[in-house]
């Protein structure tokens, strides 16, 4: 432990007139020295004001409510979400496969199937309706983009 600061230094600490470096030095000493910390309490009217305040009463039901809330598992994904998500993904996959069939379908479709498979697992693992549907929408959007690009390419090649 560092040497005890004298009363003048502690008073300057209480008054907030020390430079930052010295204040930190004194604070670190106070963290480990109950004797000086107690002296600061005597020098500081604000500390005395805080010490005179009673702790608020903790509501009796709070601990029980925390335990109950912590014990509640995350809600499973509702079946309707699974159905909607699966239909959306199937539609996206089918449309992409159809587009891919026009030009170089296999390479595009294979890449997209890998993405869809990975994202499907994520969708099914989502804890909420909003997250699940949002993810489905993103997948559908990506699939649509691929479809448009594939269609555009096939049209150019046809020309």
């Amino acid at each position: 432990m560092t040497p005890h600061p004298d009363t003048a230094l502690l008073q300057a600490f209480v008054d907030g007139t020390l430079g930052e470096h010295t204040a930190v030095h004194v604070a670190l000493h106070l963290d480990d020295c109950p004797l000086c910390a107690n002296q600061v309490l005597q020098l500081d009217p604000l500390s005395q004001a805080f010490a005179s305040v009673d702790d608020p009463v903790v509501p009796a039901a709070l601990v029980g409510d925390v335990l109950a809330a912590a014990a509640t598992p995350l809600a499973p994904v509702p079946w309707i979400e699974l159905v909607v998500g699966t239909v959306l993904l199937a539609a996206a996959a089918a449309s992409t496969m159809a587009a891919g069939g026009l030009v170089g379908w296999w390479s595009r479709a294979r890449t997209l199937i890998e993405v869809l498979t990975s994202v499907t697992a994520d969708v099914l693992a989502q804890p909420s309706v909003s997250v699940s549907l949002a993810t489905s929408a993103v997948v559908l959007g990506a699939a649509t983009l691929m479809l448009v690009r594939a269609t555009g390419t096939s049209a150019q090649e046809a020309v």
Binding site: A49, F50, V53, D54, D55, P56, V57
Partner: peptide
Amino acid sequence: VDTGPTPLQEVARHLRAERVH
């Protein structure tokens, strides 16, 4: 902040606490 029942003899102390809060 309500700190619970306040006996009359603690009114002065309670008022100080109110001001702090």
